[in-house]
Amino acid sequence: MIKNLKKQNVWFVFTPYLWLVLFFFVPLALIFKISISVSEWGMPPYRDLFSFSENGLKINSTLGNYLFIFSDPFYIRSYLNSLSLAFTSTVLCLLIGYPIAFYVAKSKPSIRNILLIMLIIPFWSSFLLRVYAWKVLLQGSGIINSILIHIGLISEPISMLHNHYAVILGVVYTYLPFMILPLYGYLVKFDLNLIDASNDLGAKPLNTFVKVILPLSLPGIVAGSMLVFIPVVGEYIIPEMLGGSDKLYFGKIIWDEFFVNRDWPIASALAMSGIVILVFPIIIFQLMYAKYNFKNE
């Protein structure tokens, strides 16, 4: 172990942190600055925060952008929609992914490795193309409509695209491997004898699951849920490709404010509020969870 920071090691240690400060934290500070600036026509489309005039330094800052966002239910609803999408799809991924991960982990080693490879293949293949695949499937002339008509369940193609159910389906489909793989990682280390022991001691299967298997796979559940929840909160691609106008999500609103309305201050204020509303709860949860684990150890 290196006990002291030698001079030649200083650059080795601090280069990556400098990089992150420069390209991650400075840009965040910048959107904060723009979020309290006043919109203006021109390039860049906001007024400088500080300006010098005859009367000395003048500060052109405003909380107007934030007031505007929080007085308009349109924006608040988009935050709530994103949160509820992330929550719903995390729960669905867990419900679908848990049994799959469990049975894969409990297969014979030879079969298990093949199944594991089959889980990793969708994980590696392009995210965008997997979303696109559902766009193809759900078309009015798509294969699901054809099957439903063929078996006589419906008589005319129904529109399955461009609503928030299609978005949930797309999210669950694309993020399912992110849930299954960490769950598998914990379940595969799990000693099968514990289940037998619990059964031998007279526990019913449900009790064994709730009291033995579930607590031991909790770290996998938390890890998988984080891997699904965090990216889905800001998801832009899936609502854009499969969603409609029935529910708008936070990621798409920022995109439109920036690229379509060209309102940089509002887009920045939305991003800052997004960090406070959507990202801070995740950080707090992780800190609490780390503390809880620490106590239990």
Partner: peptide
């Protein structure tokens, strides 16, 4: 904190902040 915070940042905010930067 420095090294792990990009993990929780939504990509849309990351993209926006980098572009403005």
């Amino acid at each position: 904190f420095l090294s792990s915070s990009p993990l929780v940042m939504p990509e849309i905010i990351l993209g926006l902040s980098l572009l403005l930067f």
